[in-house]
Design a protein around this nucleic acid. Structure first.
Lengths: 156, 156
DNA sequence: AGAATAGCGTGCGTAGCGCACGCTTCTGCT
DNA sequence: AGCAGAAGCGTGCGCTACGCACGCTATTCT
């Protein structure tokens, strides 16, 4: 436990610093404001509500709606309904789980995969622009840290 | 423009890296899932909806509901209604703007200030825990970077 | 002074949420 | 082997909160 002795001191400061920044970030993007802006003008079926489902599905591969629900942060029934919209738009399809005939797996269609890539590029472009004044190495370490924070962080 | 030449190369990679991490982070915290968890067991009036209003108000000082609205990401009328709840709980009060008698400024009460501090500490503790395995200097630079990203970033 | 504008709160229609129900399929126990 | 309970899915229902638009008061501009 090499860093344990810092827990009460500097670490707490850092915690507050991150907390404040994160609070602002989340407030600004809460209520899918960012998602709405991001999905503006995308085709049928992609909006601020279906986007998180689509995006999470792309990240993890085919999953059931029930599995997806906690990661999206809404009830299972909500995921089902959003999935129906995405299905109607041809972005995903429901596939029978070969190992369990009750289960419906949600899987991206080619069109869905394309949409996800477009959205990802949009967001990246948005971010890249705002990083244009950063020293590249700092941007890189920040990206690395943010990735670690997200995967190991308190919001897994 | 010292870093301009990187815009198309490494920078784009970094943009994607941040985009992916951020997308996950936002998805996980979308629909106020974090806010709900954070406000669990707080007193009357503080919930996942009123929290952003309260928090933003604490950050910027007394403001009108209309000013607050874009930062919270909802309509002006929504802020008014949430503010009414907070007022009923004694966490904020409406004060007549001395320079304009139409305007109602929202200002935190002492009790409100206390609630905000508690929430801030909760979030910080949450984060600090997950940073316990990080080298302190990396945590510090990450905090610094995140702060800069939030204040200069694409979501201002 | 009078007309247009800005700021606030509220009524209204709408949309999405969570809960619970019914149906099908699977599993574990006797 | 068969039956009871559980698991998984989609959908109906009541509710809440949202955004828009309206009315009212105060302000600004000509």
């Amino acid at each position: 436990m090499r860093y344990a002795r810092y827990s009460g001191g500097v670490k707490n400061e850092v915690g507050h610093e991150i907390a404040d920044a994160l609070a602002i970030l989340l407030r600004r993007t809460t209520r899918t404001q960012l998602h709405k802006q991001l999905t503006e003008g995308m085709g049928e079926g992609v909006d601020e509500q279906t986007y998180p489902v689509l995006s999470e599905l792309a990240r993890t591969g085919p999953r059931s709606a029930a599995d997806l629900a906690p990661d999206v942060g809404i009830d299972r029934s909500g995921v089902t309904r959003r999935a129906s919209r995405l299905e109607a738009a041809g972005l995903i399809r429901r596939e029978a789980d070969p190992t369990d005939r009750r289960a419906h797996l949600l899987v991206l269609t080619d069109q869905g995969r394309l949409a996800v890539e477009e959205l990802r590029t949009r967001l990246a472009a948005h971010i890249t622009t705002s990083l244009s004044t950063w020293p590249p190495n700092e941007a890189e370490t920040f990206a690395h840290h943010l990735g670690r924070f997200t995967s190991e962080g308190p919001f897994t």
